[in-house]
Design a protein around this nucleic acid. Structure first.
Length: 465
DNA sequence: CGACTTTGACCCGCGC
DNA sequence: GCGCGGGTCAAAGTCG
């Protein structure tokens, strides 16, 4: 009996010691993690310093940056590896000069990450008078009378040159970032009403025309068409800017395009060589399409398609998700925003996705200086943009930006502490699903931002077509 | 019944 | 001036 008891006690002691050793291990891991996060924080602070210096640099240069690029331009920003179809025309690679036209209309709601509030990149590129955006739209819609005022005519002419943002996505590749409805219409958070469809020349696929129905007089239009070269590629073109606060879920699209434009703009002048970066197979590039057939719209193309051919390594193709990601289309998109999770069934996927993403990002950031610098460049472009928007020095985004960066680090730390370790670095900006509807959003740096939950939240009305 | 889609017609700009 | 092509309108149809 005694021996039995003795054995039991011994076993208990063993268990205790083993559990204490495991907890010690955990502690060790946590320490390591903390160290890593500290490093990250330092890195972020470093980056912030450099960004700040650049910020002031840009302020100084602010006057020098002219609204020079009035010519029609089609700029392509590839966030994926250049797709075989898309890259064909992208021989000429160049960047657009930082154009910083003011837009008071910015105040109207489009809230982007990093606490910055800037409009859809259409305005970043060119869109001088968006206070008139609704009038503008109505002018376009109304058949102009024969006895038109000369001034009006001139105005209209200038307004014809509206900037557009074109997004190329693979609609049969439900990457985590791109959501497409049953009709092939890319979900972007806004509500759209189809008002026309045409079969354009050179492409048997019909082009659908949508207008924003969030506000009755919203001038924003979008066109959706499949690429003739590759039917799996969906080309969505946005035109105009919202004259109303857009739904939170729609800011993802806005931030995507804005980030694209920002990165583009950060490249500075047209005379510079192409802004092209490749990090472990991730290809960031801006290029100038020479397409004379296109209308005279300044246009940014955000290429979110991917091509497996040139893939050497993909940061993002390891997500253990249930999304039917086919090997054909490895996800090549960068998504630093937090996916919206509005449906419980996706919570787990979302969690794993976040975990993987964060692990990947953490590794990428800590191990790859070029990736770090890329992110830094992207962020700085946003700062640069905000600077450009408020060249009068009233801009306060720099502060909030730094706060957000710090908050990011803090979030990472707290996540680390709360056993959500590794679940969010960038996603830590907004890891809560409760942010939906919240006006006080924390920052989100989104390079591309469609997500599973968005799909779930997607109104079936959009898809019934 | 309201919101939305479909689709043919129409308008306009542009190139020849 | 004419034709082409892109974009929009609006009536009819569809759906929930």
């Amino acid at each position: 009996m005694e021996t039995d008891i003795g054995r039991k006690v011994h076993k208990t002691v063993d268990l205790k010691s083993s559990s204490s050793s495991s907890s010690r291990d955990e502690l060790e891991t946590a320490k390591e993690e903390n160290e890593r996060l500290k490093m990250m924080l330092e890195q972020i602070q470093e980056n912030y310093k450099s960004l700040q210096s650049r910020f002031f640099e840009i302020i100084k240069q602010g006057s020098a940056i002219e609204e020079g690029s009035e010519e029609p331009e089609l700029i392509s920003l590839s966030l994926g590896r250049s797709s075989p179809t898309g890259s064909k025309k992208d021989d000429k690679k160049t960047t657009i000069c930082s154009k910083t036209e003011e837009d008071d209309h910015n105040k109207s709601g489009l809230t982007l990450g990093l606490d910055s509030k800037f409009q859809l990149s259409t305005e970043i590129v060119s869109n001088p008078s968006h206070e008139n955006s609704s009038e503008e739209a109505s002018k376009v819609q109304k058949r102009p009378s024969s006895g038109e005022d000369h001034e009006e005519g001139v105005e209209q002419k200038s307004q014809v040159k509206r900037a557009r943002v074109s997004v190329r996505t693979r609609c049969d590749a439900p990457t985590l970032l791109i959501m497409v409805d049953a009709n092939g219409q890319m979900y972007d958070g806004c509500q759209w009403r189809k008002y026309g469809q045409k079969i354009s020349k050179g492409n048997p696929c019909p082009r659908a025309y949508y207008r924003c129905t969030v506000a009755p007089d919203c001038p924003v239009r979008k066109q959706v068409q499949r690429s003739f070269e590759d039917m799996s590629i969906l080309v969505t073109t946005y035109e105009g800017s919202h004259n109303h606060p857009i739904p939170v879920s729609a800011t993802t699209m806005a931030s995507t395009t804005a980030a694209a434009a920002s990165m583009l703009l950060s490249g500075s002048s047209t005379s510079q060589p192409a802004l092209s970066t490749e990090i472990n197979g991730l290809n960031f590039s801006s290029s100038l399409h020479d397409n004379s057939r296109l209308p005279s719209y300044p246009m940014i193309t955000l290429d979110l398609t991917g091509s497996p051919s040139s893939s050497s390594f993909n940061y993002f193709n390891r997500f253990p998700t249930n999304f039917p990601v086919t090997p054909r289309f490895p996800s090549t998109n960068l998504n630093f925003s937090s996916p919206l999770v509005s449906n419980e069934s996706f919570t787990q996927e979302h969690y794993f996705y976040q975990q993987s993403l964060t692990d990947t990002l953490t590794k990428a950031i800590t191990s790859d200086p070029s990736f770090r610098s890329l992110i830094s460049a992207a962020i700085s472009s946003m700062v640069g943009h905000s600077c450009a928007k408020h060249g009068d020095g009233t801009d306060q985004r720099g502060d909030s930006f730094s706060q957000n960066l710090m908050q990011t680090a803090i979030n990472s730390q707290s996540l680390n502490d709360s056993s959500l370790r590794g679940s969010s670095y960038f996603n830590g900006f907004e890891s809560s699903s409760s942010r939906i509807g919240s006006s006080n959003r924390s920052s989100s740096l989104s390079f591309s931002s469609f997500n599973a939950a968005s799909t779930l939240a997607f109104d079936n009305k959009q898809g019934k077509n």
